[in-house]
Structures are given as C-alpha cells and as structure tokens.
Nucleic acid binder design. Structure first.
Length: 311
DNA sequence: ATAGCGCCCTGGTGGC
DNA sequence: TGCCACCAGGGCGCTA
C-alpha cells in the first residue's frame, strides 16, 4: 500500500521529531518481520543508537543511526511497509495499534512502533559499507562521506530489491529517453514495467493506474510499442501525480497512516483507482476494472483506447 | 533475459 | 446471522 508518496509523507513527519532520539530499548514480538540480520543481532545493535538523518529511496525508508559506543559510521535502519505496514512515532502512553511487531523505546519516552496486519513488511539493519554509496546519496543521506569504499563488491543482503532500484521518478534521471531505453523491445504490458521497481522506484498499483489515465495510455499496451512523445507525456503524468499525492499526504483507504498516525487525503482526488463502475471525470464513460500484470487495474475504456497487443 | 504465476499473511466485503 | 469464497495497495522466488 504505501507507495512513494506515502513513504515520503512518513519520512517528512518523522524528520521533525525523530532525529536526536536515542533508542533505549527494542521489543521484537514477531521475529519474521526482521529481514536482516538476525532478530537478536538487530536488537542488540539498535540499543543505544541515536537517530540522525532520515531518507527515502523508492518505497524504502532509511534511518541513519549513530552509535557512539562503536564510534564508526553508524548504521542504517531500513523499513519497507509492503501492503499494510505502519511506522508511527507516538507517545508511549498511547494505545497500541493491534499487530504491533516491533517497538523502539526512545529517550524522550516516545515510541517508534512498527505494525503490520499482514506481516509482509520488513525491517533491516545495515552498516553503511553494506549498502552502495550511490543508494545512500540518492536516499538523501548527505552524511555519506565521499571517497570511501568506491568500487567494493556489495553483496545484496536482506532485501534483494533494495540493491537494484531504478531511478527516483521525481529525479531528472527519470525522463522519456530513459523509459524508451528500458521499454525497447519489451512486450510486457506497460503497467507491469512501471510496477517493476528496477525500472523506476516507488510506483505501486494506485499511482500507476492514475498516471496511465493521465497520459491516456491503456495499461495493457505493450511497453515497447509506445512512441517517445507518448512516453514524455507519461513521464510528466507520473511526476505530476506523485507531486500532488505527496501534497495531499498520501492515499488512505484503510491501513495507511503517516508517521504521526494521521491518514492522507489523496483518495479524494483519484480519477480511476477504486472507481470502477463510476463515470470518468473526463468523458463520463464508466470506469472499467480488469486484471493486468496480476493486479486489479482501473482505466477509462474511452480515454485510454484499447490496444491490440497484449491483453 | 523475460514474462507469468503462486505464495507469504490477515481482515473486510459481498453473495447466498 | 452465519459461512465462505474472493479480494487487497508488494515483492520474491520459481518456472519455462
């Protein structure tokens, strides 16, 4: 559920209150949500660390922690919320959301709580040297000192996807020429490739459907068959919907909450997602729902003219 | 390499 | 009301 705008919203709510907090205690109630390293090591290495910068890369949230005890470059706590995860910084007295699996007790007596009904979400703890420098820079963790470890082989530990992310969709690296290169010769539906985090990082089912509607492209269109002018329009629409969704603090249907536990507002501005059976805001045609790339797919059959290839 | 599928989990919904 | 099949915003690992 949380896609780029939701994770960015969480980052922005945490960045005001989390830096400077020291982790005094770690409670892990479900071992399976710790993706790397072992739950025991995760817990041990987290105690005593202090939160500094908070970054984001795609749908991953990265928290830089300083550990005075070890005196090294610190550690990176990485969180992926998958479908139903929540990461909320709250007063320790407040009632817990059910399905809370990890609780970090902070020096201010607040708690950072990770909850997830479906337990798909994962937490990881890395040393900076275990992550590509490029990743840290792209995530906005500016402390990453230049010069050290240039070309060392980095083994993808924990989350394979974290090590092969495509460009940030809001960066200048993400443009029509890039998409044309990635789409060249590909027969998969454009929707499938936009959901592929190694093509572009951070899009999920909601914003892909919305962007394809904005660009008037049928989601089943073979990616390689789209001309570059249309791709340019698609890129513009992806950036536009992400910017607007961040401004609305994300989309909440049921589970998503920001870092303070508050819902988002972008569900009020969706044009096709979750609007099957309702009239298209542009032409009045009934919004259709089908299955593409293994996921529920919403589109306007009139505005997003159907394609012969695929589907 | 690419494309498609099942699976990991639990809860909500809609049909009967 | 009760039961149950089906669906859900993501990613991974397997298959051919």
């Amino acid at each position: 559920m949380p896609e780029l705008p939701e994770v960015e919203t969480i980052r922005r709510s945490l960045v005001k209150r989390l830096p400077g907090e020291m982790i005094a205690g770690v409670a892990i109630r479900s071992l399976d949500v710790i993706g790397y390293p072992s739950a025991g090591e995760f817990q041990e290495r987290l105690v005593g660390a202090t939160a500094r910068a908070i970054g984001r890369r795609g749908k991953y949230l990265l928290i830089h922690l300083e550990s005075p005890a070890t005196g090294d470059a610190g550690q990176i706590l990485v969180v992926h919320l998958r479908m139903t995860g929540r990461l909320v910084l709250t007063d320790g007295e407040r009632d817990e959301f059910p399905h809370t699996h990890v609780v970090l007790d902070l020096s201010s007596r607040q708690q950072l709580r990770f909850s997830d009904v479906r337990r798909f979400g994962r937490l990881y703890l890395y040393r900076p040297g275990q992550l590509p420098r490029q990743l840290l820079v792209e995530a906005g963790l500016a402390w990453a000192a230049p010069g050290d470890h240039h070309h060392q082989d980095i083994k993808p530990l924990g989350s394979p996807g974290l090590f092969q992310l495509g460009p940030e969709p809001l960066s200048d690296d993400f443009d029509a020429a890039y998409l044309a290169r990635k789409f060249y010769g590909r027969r998969a539906p454009v929707k499938a490739l936009l959901l592929d985090q190694s093509v572009v990082a951070g899009l999920g089912n909601i914003y892909v459907d919305e962007a394809l509607f904005g660009a008037a492209i049928h989601p089943g269109t073979a990616a390689g068959s789209i001309d570059e002018a249309t791709l340019a329009n698609l890129v513009d629409n992806i950036k536009d919907v992400l910017v607007r969704a961040i401004a609305a603090r994300g989309t909440t249907f049921s589970d998503y909450r920001d870092g303070s536990g508050e819902p988002g507002e972008f569900q009020n501005y969706l044009q096709v997602f979750a609007r099957a059976g309702q009239p298209c805001t542009r032409c009045g045609t009934t919004i259709a729902k089908t299955r593409i790339a293994g996921r529920g797919t919403h589109f306007c059959p009139a505005c997003q003219g159907r394609r012969s290839d695929t589907t």
